[in-house]
Computed example of a mutant assay.
Amino acid sequence: MTTTTESKNNNDESSIELSVVIPCLNEADTLEICIEKAQRAMRDHGITGEVIVADNGSTDGSLEIAEKMNARIIAVQAKGYGAALQGGIEGSAGKFVIMGDADDSYDFLEVPKFVDKLRDGYDLVMGCRLPGGGGTVAPGAMPFLHRWWGNPMFTFMARKMFKMPTHDVYCGLRGFTRELYDRLKLTCTGMEFATEMLIKSSLTGEKIAEVPITLHPDGRKNRAPHLKTFSDGWRTLRFFMMYSPRWLFLMPGLFLVFLGLIGYGLAMPGVAIFGAVLDAHTLLFASLSIIIGYQSMSFAVLAKIFSIREKFIPEDKRINRFFEIFTLEKGITVGACVSLCGIVTLGTAVVHWWQTGFAGLDYAETMRIVIPGFTLTILGYQSVMGSFFASILGMPRK
């Protein structure tokens, strides 16, 4: 990321406790009031700090406003909400960083509440706008779908999937230590940046606190908000799933395998349910469920290994134990044995056909041999190939 910095702050950088970073892209309507509130909050509470405007290419006079307000401007060439914040944070001088949007929906006069928690030793302090965490949404401040569906749903998912101790996953007003930011090595340049920060902090067991805040109506008059309800909602859901192989691959895979085994248990003896006989066709569907489920479970392991190796997520003791037990040779042996059982089973069906002089066979009886045979053959082959892939991902490297 390429940035250029223009300093408008007379504080000695070594004495700066707090950097307030405000991403900016044509925010002339509200930027001045945001800067003024942040500066007043620090001044009134004896906080030595700076206000940084991380500009992403404004052309509406935002830069002139920042200069007039004696804020420090960091021009970030890489486009995106996350890119702007990264540029501003990396150019900051404070021990603590507080980030917040420039639309005046977040009240920067609440900054001292975040600083108090950071001084108490917390690594990340999240604002909470929702009543579940003591926050307040002012009338007209949040669209109906965001208030009653999007935010509650994604917050519930985050608490379930990543054990987040927060009640408002989307809140953009938050504070954190510069040391935490450097350690997390965040990579997202879009709106997922804020979500990545919270997920990684939760997964690595950081000390996270939450303070109630009030969300005010967007103060901008001359342009629409950057947020897009459905596309940004999908991006969040996609990000959640990619950061959780367990919920994306493992849980659906286990369910499908379980469903397939039930199908086998009913179809092999030809059980009748409500007059419907579960026969070879049910067996075929059950095999499909098992094969897809097993593949999904394999993806869970492979995705977990890759994510850990690339440092998307922290190390997992279960994966370490997996490699203590698993070897490529064991995987090949088990997979080959399973495939061999499948081939032998298929061979039994061929022999039976040969014994009849290659005449017609009883469909239901024959398929009870053929379907399990090809299912075992496929599962064994998947196991061999998956073992090679896991070994490739797990190879030691510098």
Rank of each mutant, 00 (worst) to 15 (best):
K163Y: 13
H216I: 12
V137I: 15
P152Y: 13
E315S: 13
G219I: 00
T155Q: 01
R40E: 07
Y243Q: 08
R159I: 02
C188Y: 13
E315P: 09
L376T: 01
L261H: 10
I378W: 06
A272D: 08
G260L: 09
M297I: 14
D107P: 06
K221H: 09
P269K: 07
K398E: 15
M395L: 14
T187E: 13
E206C: 13
T214M: 06
A224S: 12
L256Q: 00
L186W: 06
N26Y: 01
T282H: 02
V344I: 15
L203E: 06
S289H: 08
E27A: 11
M164W: 02
F193E: 11
A194H: 11
F176S: 05
F388D: 08
S244Q: 11
H216L: 15
K37N: 07
Y264V: 08
T327R: 06
R368M: 06
R246T: 14
Y181Q: 07
W247D: 11
E36I: 01
I308A: 12
D107R: 01
T356F: 01
L180S: 08
A349E: 10
A71N: 05
T348D: 12
T377R: 05
P139E: 12
P112T: 04
I273A: 08
F274G: 14
E50Q: 10
L266G: 10
P131F: 01
L198S: 08
R309V: 04
L237D: 04
C188A: 15
V51M: 01
L130D: 08
A41G: 05
N151P: 00
G394V: 09
G134H: 04
P314F: 01
V111D: 05
A272P: 00
L237M: 14
F388T: 07
A336T: 10
Q355Y: 13
I313S: 10
L145D: 14
Q355D: 14
I343K: 00
I89F: 05
N26E: 07
P212T: 07
K200Q: 13
G275P: 05
Y122H: 10
S105N: 03
E365N: 01
A364T: 11
I308S: 12
G233K: 14
I392Y: 10
V115M: 02
I290Y: 03
Y181C: 11
F176D: 02
V351D: 00
K200D: 09
A280G: 00
G94I: 05
L261D: 11
A141L: 00
Y122G: 04
K37V: 01
L346C: 12
G335N: 02
D55L: 00
S58I: 04
V20C: 07
L186H: 07
E310S: 14
F299G: 05
V344G: 03
I65T: 07
F374V: 09
F193R: 09
P212W: 04
D218E: 13
G150N: 13
Y81N: 12
M242Y: 12
L203H: 02
S391F: 00
P245S: 09
L173Y: 15
T155W: 02
D29F: 04
W234M: 11
I74D: 01
L63P: 03
I305Y: 03
D362S: 05
G233M: 14
K330Q: 05
L361R: 06
G263D: 10
L203G: 10
D232Q: 06
L328M: 09
